[in-house]
Design a protein around this nucleic acid. Sequence first.
DNA 1: GCGTGATGTTGAA
DNA 2: TCAACCTCACGCC
Length: 291
Amino acid sequence: MPEGHTLHRLALDLTDAFAGQQVRVGSPQGRFDAEARQLDGQVLESAEAWGKQLFLEFPGERFVHIHLGLIGKLAITPYDGEVPPPVGQVRLRLVGREHLADLRGATACDLWTLEQRDACVAKLGPDPLRDPEDGGDPDRAWKRIGGSQRSIASLLMDQAVLAGVGNVYRAELLFRHRVDPLRPGASLSRRQWDAMWDDLVGLMRTGVERNRIDTVRDEHTPEAMGRDPRVDDHGGEVYVYRRAGQPCHVCGAVIRTAALEGRNLFWCPGCQRRYRPRTAVRAVRGATPRR
DNA sequence: GCGTGATGTTGAA
DNA sequence: TCAACCTCACGCC
């Protein structure tokens, strides 16, 4: 689940469930035990997301830093009376008045100082889910993208360029703007980038509201097109992500996939026409066709 | 029931 | 470029 929308949604849900309360903090699995002991019984002051990073603030400028990675989950559940025993490898457990939260499979769960938190945040590009004055300024991303010969597909996934975008939003954003994933960042116009950013803000806000990624426009929904809704663990309605070999909802061309920097890229060869620069010969690197 | 792959990142080779 | 992290839904038996 974890692109930026998941972490922002978790921050909201954690705030509702725990903020302002004394919480029991534990690490049934043990790997966070020493840190958990220091926080046990303290008030959870706030929960905040920056891109895919999640920070839980405790008194004394101490922050639990969580990064879910690919397979991590943070499950918040209400309980009534007895607290159920942990199931599986629970790295971190928070117990409040009415809810408990269990963290499993995360890449990172650390107890950080304010300085460590600030250093992490300082390395991140702007987050479309944050206010422009508070970490969500698209100009900062454009400064990196507009001058780069790297592919826009690579740039969008680079958390130092843009924070919170993952493989699904990348593929879908490029599709919605009919952009060839391998185009150099510098070949985009400022106007085009602004349109992409604005779109991303809307898509990701919808993602926070629905807690899933939906990117198809009204005219391409299953209801509008009379097609079956998507059924898999991703769940959202999308144009190209994990649809390789299937027909494009818009033009009918067969969706393609290729590995780029270790991640699967998906695009429609009909809607996202190959970009060819006017002058220089473009070097195509790093993309290996598959299937 | 078992094997696979996945919305991510780090650190070693 | 690849293994590791260590979860969970899915397809297939």
